[in-house]
């Protein structure tokens, strides 16, 4: 077979399979969603032809009886809650994930591999099942409350289920490995002689942590934050099960529009909004990565 001589052509042919996979499985569905979000909803699901920005209007405004626009914050609250809970999840994962990642890097190579394997194990079990486990832990007759009640320490339920706290706990639990792994990757490359050098130059443990370890682990910390934030903001299993549907988040809202409410354009519009949040987060990461590149010359 004759290979084309033009390097540009060859590069194009070489990358063609990748372009096709990305195009068919990523770009096309998103384009379809984008198109749908500008169409009219069919009461039986699906969409009717015609262009309208009705779906986007619905996010912020409701029509009152006189067909006038009326500001309705109900979805704004859901968006706000989604972002807030996702940020709490990011923060929680960082607090728990960093020490774990640090601990793993300080072990022997063989032990490191085993610990990393253990960190990834929960990923092999269905998220739904694992989130159900949290119901058993947090619910009124769960493993926390039951013993406390029988010991007489508490009388009334702690009401841990169906709260923002329960959802955040579920999110932290679900996405903790996504924080641990990139931070581990960063810390693993960190030369611990630099930490010694910092101690030698009068930096206490905390100062060495703040001045040397954290700055050098920054790429991993940022990657971990993005990796936790993105699925958290669109999560629907944890909010549904642990929030009991009372603490709706963006992911659940989208799920609702396509499943029970049969309002595909609205679902599409919210999905586009979510995509925008994710893009902003990724752009921020890209910018900080570029800044780092410039700094290190």
């Amino acid at each position: 077979m004759n290979l084309p001589q033009n390097p540009a052509t060859r590069r194009f042919l070489g990358l063609l399979p990748a372009w096709l996979v990305i195009g068919i499985f990523m770009v096309m569905p998103m384009m379809i969603l984008l198109v749908f979000s500008f169409m009219e909803s069919d009461p039986y699901g699906g969409v009717d032809p015609g262009f309208t920005i009705e779906a986007y209007r619905q996010i912020l405004f409701d029509l009152n009886f006189d067909d006038e626009l009326e500001f309705d914050p109900v979805y704004l609250i859901i968006i706000g809650r989604s972002i807030l809970l996702a940020l709490i999840a990011v923060f929680g994962c960082l607090i728990f994930g960093f020490p774990v990642a640090y601990y793993i890097t300080r072990q022997e190579r063989r032990v490191q591999n085993m610990l990393l394997y253990l960190v990834t194990i929960p990923f092999w079990t269905n998220l739904l099942v694992r989130t159900y486990a949290w119901i058993l832990i947090l619910s009124g007759d769960g493993v926390i409350e039951q013993p406390l009640k029988s010991l007489g320490i508490i009388e009334n339920s702690l009401e841990m289920m169906y709260t923002n706290g329960a959802v955040a706990t579920g999110l932290v639990y679900s996405y903790l490995p996504l924080m641990v792994l990139p931070i581990y990757a960063s810390l693993e490359k960190l030369d611990f002689r630099l930490v010694e050098a910092a101690h030698d130059l009068y930096a206490s443990r905390f100062q060495a942590f703040k001045q040397v370890i954290v700055p050098l682990a920054k790429p991993g910390i940022i990657a971990g934050c993005i990796l936790v934030f993105v699925p958290s903001v669109g999560a629907f299993i944890a909010p549904d099960l642990l929030g009991g549907g009372k603490k709706l988040m963006l992911g659940s809202l989208i799920h609702l529009q396509f499943a029970s409410s049969r309002n595909w354009p609205f679902g599409g519009a919210i999905a586009m909004l979510l995509l925008a949040f994710v893009m902003i987060a990724l752009l921020w990461q890209l910018r900080s990565a570029r800044k780092r590149m410039e700094e290190s010359g």
């Binding site: 002689r193 630099l194 010694e196 050098a197 101690h199 030698d200 206490s204 001045q211 290190s296």
Partner: peptide, 20 residues
């Protein structure tokens, strides 16, 4: 005493300059 409480400083074999 930890290193940061000793009146000595070290020049390391591989310099150990802070890259950031």
């Amino acid at each position: 005493l930890p290193p940061y409480e000793r009146p000595v400083n070290t020049v390391f074999q591989h310099y150990a300059l802070f890259p950031h």
